[in-house]
Simulated assay, not measured.
Amino acid sequence: MTRGVRGATTVLKNEENQIIMNTKDLIEEMVAKNNIQPSDISHVFISVTQDLNAGFPSKALREFSGWTYVPVMCMREIDVPGSLQACIRIMMVVNTNKDQQDMQHIYHNQATQLRPDLLSKRGE
C-alpha cells in the first residue's frame, strides 16, 4: 500500500540556506515519526509559494544518506489571495502497512495553521 505523508514549514526570509535547512528539519521529523526508510519512498513532491525562489528545497534530500535515487520534484504552489506565504509543502509517497489515520503529518512554524485539526489529534 502507498500512503501520502504531508508536511509543511515556513521560512522567515527568501534565502537558499533557510529554505534548505527548514526543509531538512521537516523531512527529518516526517521520516522519524513515520519510521520511513529511503527504500520505502516512491517519490516526493515539494511545492513553494511564489515568494520563494532563492533555492531548491529538494537539495535538502540529497543531504540524507541513502536518498540518492529518491525521485523528487519541486513546483510552485497555487497563488491564492490571502494564503500563507513563505511556505514549503511536502507530499512524500511511501510504501507502508500503516492505515491512513496512522500516518503522522508534520507542520512547522507558521504552517501549523494549515491543518490544526491534525495537530490537535496528535496532542501537539
Rank of each mutant, 00 (worst) to 15 (best):
Pro81Gly: 06
Ser83His: 12
Leu118Glu: 15
Met92Ile: 01
Arg122Lys: 12
Val11His: 04
Asp40Met: 06
Arg89Val: 10
Ala8Ser: 14
Thr2Ile: 10
Asn95Lys: 09
Gln101Thr: 01
His105Asp: 10
Asp40Gln: 05
Ala32Thr: 10
Thr112Phe: 04
Thr23Ile: 03
Phe56His: 10
Val5Tyr: 01
His108Val: 01
Gly82Met: 14
Asn22Met: 03
Met75Ile: 03
Asp102Gly: 13
Cys87Gly: 09
Leu84Ile: 12
Pro81Cys: 11
His108Asp: 03
Leu26Met: 09
Thr10Asn: 07
Val11Gln: 05
Arg122Thr: 09
Ile41Phe: 14
Ile46Asp: 08
Asn14Ile: 08
Asn22Lys: 09
Lys59Asp: 13
Leu119Ile: 14
Met92Pro: 09
Thr96Leu: 01
Tyr69His: 04
Gln85Arg: 15
Gly55Glu: 12
Ile27Ala: 09
Gln113Trp: 01
Ala32Ser: 10
Ala86Gly: 02
Pro116Cys: 06
Leu52Phe: 11
Glu63Asp: 02
Val94Pro: 01
Glu15Ser: 07
Met21Lys: 15
Lys24Asn: 09
Asn14Arg: 02
Gly7Val: 11
Thr2Asp: 02
Thr2Gln: 04
Ile78Tyr: 01
Ala32Leu: 09
Val44Met: 13
Glu77Phe: 03
Gln18Gly: 00
Thr96Trp: 00
Met21Gly: 01
Lys33Asn: 08
Met73His: 06
Val80Ala: 11
Tyr69Asn: 07
Ser120Arg: 15
Asp79Trp: 00
Trp67Asp: 04
Met21Val: 15
Lys59Ser: 05
Lys59Ala: 06
Glu15Tyr: 09
Ser42Gly: 06
Ile106Trp: 00
Thr49Trp: 07
Gln50Thr: 10
Ala32Val: 06
His43Gly: 10
Thr10Gly: 10
Lys59Glu: 14
Arg6Gly: 05
Ser39Pro: 01
Leu52Trp: 08
Thr2His: 01
Lys24Ser: 05
Lys98Glu: 09
Leu52Thr: 11
Asp99Arg: 11
Ile27His: 09
Thr112Lys: 15
Asn35Lys: 15
Ala60Glu: 06
Glu16Ser: 12
Ser83Trp: 05
Lys33Thr: 05
Met30Trp: 07
Val44Pro: 01
Arg115Pro: 01
Lys121Arg: 14
Pro116Arg: 02
Thr68His: 00
Thr9Trp: 07
Thr68Pro: 00
Trp67Phe: 14
Asp79Arg: 02
Lys59Ile: 04
Lys33Asp: 10
Asn22Cys: 00
Ala86Arg: 08
Leu84His: 08
Gly4Cys: 07
Ser47Tyr: 02
Ile46Leu: 11
Pro57Ser: 02
Glu29Ile: 13
Asn14Ala: 04
Met103Thr: 03
Ile46Ala: 13
Val11Glu: 04
Ser47Glu: 09
Glu15Lys: 15
Pro57Asp: 05
Pro57Tyr: 03
Ser39Trp: 02
Val5Ser: 01
Gln101Glu: 12
Met91Ala: 10
Arg62Pro: 00
Cys87Pro: 00
Met30Pro: 07
Phe56Gly: 05
Arg122Met: 08
Gln18Tyr: 00
Lys121Phe: 04
Gln18Trp: 02
Val80Lys: 10
Val48Leu: 01
Lys121Trp: 04
Lys59Thr: 04
Asp51Asn: 14
Met21Glu: 08
Leu84Val: 07
Val44Thr: 07
Tyr69Arg: 06
Met1Asp: 08
Val5Ala: 02
Gly55Lys: 13
